[in-house]
């Protein structure tokens, strides 16, 4: 598949629009996970690094490709780890069953009765 000039512009335009719309819907309460989440999404750069590294034919290319994959993998893995951790913390005090979170899913009691009294 070859993507040239205008096809690339179409892709860029639609993706930019999608990004704008998607992020416009996110409530302020989730802005930190959103930032780390979008940070994770551009971690996809790691596959670009992999293409380049697998195609390397000189020592210099291997070296730079290694750095590209190393950094890209760090971006993706780290971005995912912090986002997932933060999102698991958000819980309601509501009565409806809490969404399926993993380990952090222990539902907190609505109120704690005082020890004294």
């Amino acid at each position: 598949m070859t993507i040239d000039g205008f096809v690339a512009l179409y892709i860029f335009m639609l993706a930019a629009f999608a990004g704008w719309v998607i992020i416009g819907r996110v409530p302020a309460i989730l802005h930190t996970p959103l930032m780390s989440g979008s940070n994770f999404v551009h971690g996809i750069v790691v596959i670009g690094g992999l293409y380049a590294l697998l195609n390397a034919s000189t020592g210099l290319e291997q070296g730079i490709g290694f750095i590209a994959v190393l950094l890209g993998a760090g971006n993706a893995a780290g971005g995912y780890a912090v986002t997932d951790r933060m999102l698991a913390m958000f819980q309601t005090s509501g009565h409806q069953p809490v969404h399926a979170t993993h380990k952090g899913g222990a539902h907190r009691r609505k109120s704690t009765s005082p020890k004294k009294g």
């Binding site: 690339a8 892709i11 993706a15 999608a18 990004g19 992020i23 979008s38 999404v41 551009h42 596959i47």
Partner: peptide, 18 residues
């Protein structure tokens, strides 16, 4: 690589809005 183009530009626009 379209996946990179889409994900990258998506974050680019999202980041600017944010």
């Amino acid at each position: 690589t379209p996946a990179l183009m889409i994900a990258g530009m998506l974050v680019g626009a999202a980041g600017i809005l944010l």
